[in-house]
Design a protein around this nucleic acid. Structure first.
Length: 482
RNA sequence: AGCGAGGUAGGGUAGCAUGGAGUGCCCGCCGGGCUCAUAACCCGGAGAUCGGUGGUUCAAAUCCACCUCUCGCUACCA
């Protein structure tokens, strides 16, 4: 879910600023894990995958992913032609060959283990002695791309956010790239997965076909016109656990197939719950559906973008969630907006004609600088920092309101007071606008009170005079203790 | 073990490249103010041997060395 929100924030920001945006996502369903899970639940694999995918799609919709395509890799009709074509292209480039693979195989786990994974020569799960099994698989000539991948990193052909992950991968590359197996025997996969073209006995390695979701998601092999329009992707959003696939295997595959590389990869960390890794055994798994049902998507979006560092692990706890929403979203931003709008509405009947005075111009200058920083941070995909910057604006705005004390001023000098309120309304407008990628609904509501809509950065202008405020309602509600 | 990142008030962080009074931010805590606002907002305060030791320097969170602890990566698991 975190990834969905993050992607959506980026997507909305880009779209608002004039880019065409198409989001594609999917589920790689061809793994052995699914086969086993389905066996355990005694239902067909296809059924299990369909159920999971439905949950995912429903969640994505709740998170308000703007427009997206969802590819399920086990669905032949919309996906298989993609990876099979890539396979053929790689094969034509001479990068696929057959090789015997032998390894220690645990029958109970149904998987191979490397020496380092084995504990004193025994399977770490079953504590039994694994068998030495030999199997003939197809391999991808990754070693051939050693130089090209090094170059790719050096020249930033794919921008990596954050940089530190790029360094990590470069370290990996420097150890020397080895060819990797890209198929499994039919026996091992139990016939689940994408068949290798021209060899019935072999099925594709999950990642080989899963990565192709990025391609088929924009029409590759199914709608070439669409594909031309959307590929190469400007960004992939992935978790830190799978960067090797995205930053090494995937580019190499694309190079081999003669397709352009994606332009950037955004890597995020994991969410822990109450300081611990989420796991079913500990029982601290946070169900995103429940969270959204309980608190609403806007709050959830706000929390994850504000409290979780974009590129690192972050923690969720109910306490932190409430504090974050009540003290900042409500107390800082919500309060400022509400006190301003209410004041303008009750004291001036909503009609504010004056321009801000000098104090207002000065404070708007401060706000304006931060507004530019927010925009810059968003282009750098630094969502978390951008959100913090918006809160800073909220602070400035509240302080200004406090120091100017318009509630006093209105009794003494109404004209001067109107100028102050005008400055405050300008700040409401800026905050409302900046908030759009993060909490789109609320943003639209805020701007709606002053008869506006979210606009691209730069179109807002430096300052406005003349606002007509409708009767305001609370935008961000507090979470009440039950 | 190798490579990489990091250890800054109770918690979370910024600062480090180009050394200059422990400087900043968020949450929490304490005190005060305000009453337009959702018990919201504003101001002030307490709280830190900047992981440890040694070195360079007039001066080190910042540079160097060593130590210590934490966390990632080390491919055919996805």
């Amino acid at each position: 879910m975190f990834e969905f929100i993050m992607t959506d924030v980026v997507a909305r920001h880009r779209k608002l600023n004039g880019s065409k945006v198409w989001v594609t996502t999917g589920s790689d369903e061809n793994s052995l894990k699914n086969v086993r899970a389905a066996e355990a639940q005694k239902i067909p694999v296809g059924e299990l995958c369909r159920r999971n995918a439905d949950l995912f799609i429903a969640l994505a919709k709740k998170v308000e992913l703007s427009e997206f395509s969802f590819i399920r890799s086990s669905v032949k009709e919309t996906h298989w032609k993609g990876p099979q074509k890539i396979w053929e292209l790689c094969d034509k480039a001479g990068d696929i060959y057959k090789k015997k693979y032998s390894g220690m195989y645990c029958v109970a786990c149904e998987q191979f283990y490397t020496d380092s994974e084995l504990e004193t020569g025994l399977c770490p799960v079953h504590k039994t002695k694994p068998e030495l099994i030999e199997e003939e698989n197809y391999f991808f000539r990754l070693s051939k791309y050693q130089k090209r991948i090094e170059e790719m990193f050096k020249n930033d052909e794919i921008m990596v956010f954050p940089q530190s992950k790029k360094n990590e991968m470069m370290g990996f590359v420097n150890q020397g790239l080895e060819d990797f197996s890209i198929s499994r025997s039919k026996m091992r996969t139990k016939g689940w997965g994408v068949p290798v073209p021209g060899d019935e006995s072999q099925y594709m390695y999950v990642w080989f076909d899963a990565l192709c979701i990025y391609l088929t998601g924009v029409g590759f092999q199914y709608d070439e016109k669409k594909f031309k329009e959307w590929w190469p992707a400007s960004m992939h959003v992935v978790g830190k656990d799978i960067i090797r696939f995205h930053l090494i295997y995937w580019p190499a595959m694309l190079m081999s197939a003669g397709l352009p590389l994606p332009k950037s990869v955004l890597i995020h960390g994991f969410i822990t719950a109450g300081g611990e890794k989420m796991s079913k055994t500990v029982g601290n798994v946070v169900d995103p559906d429940e969270l959204i049902a309980k608190y609403g998507i806007e709050r959830v979006r706000y929390f994850f973008m504000k409290d979780i560092p974009t590129f690192e692990d972050g923690d969720y706890s109910e306490g932190a969630f409430k504090a974050c929403v009540n003290n900042e979203l409500v107390g800082n931003l919500g309060n400022f907006i509400h006190r301003t709008l209410t004041f303008a509405y009750t004291k001036f009947g909503g009609e504010i004609k004056s321009a801000p005075n000098e104090s207002g111009i000065s404070v708007l200058g401060e706000v304006g600088r931060r507004r530019e920083e927010v925009n810059k941070l968003l282009w750098e995909n630094n969502i978390h920092e951008a959100m913090l910057k918006i809160l800073e604006i909220g602070n400035i705005a509240n302080r200004y309101f406090q120091e100017m004390a318009p509630w006093e001023l209105v009794k003494k000098d109404k004209e001067e007071c109107e100028k102050v309120v005008s400055a405050c309304l300008n700040m409401c407008m800026i905050i409302g606008d900046l908030l759009y990628p993060f909490v789109p609904e609320s943003s639209e509501r805020i701007l709606g009170f002053i008869g506006m809509k979210p606009v691209p950065f730069g179109e807002l202008g430096e300052m406005r005079s003349g606002f007509s405020v409708k009767e305001p309602k609370i935008v961000f509600e507090k979470i009440q203790e039950k």
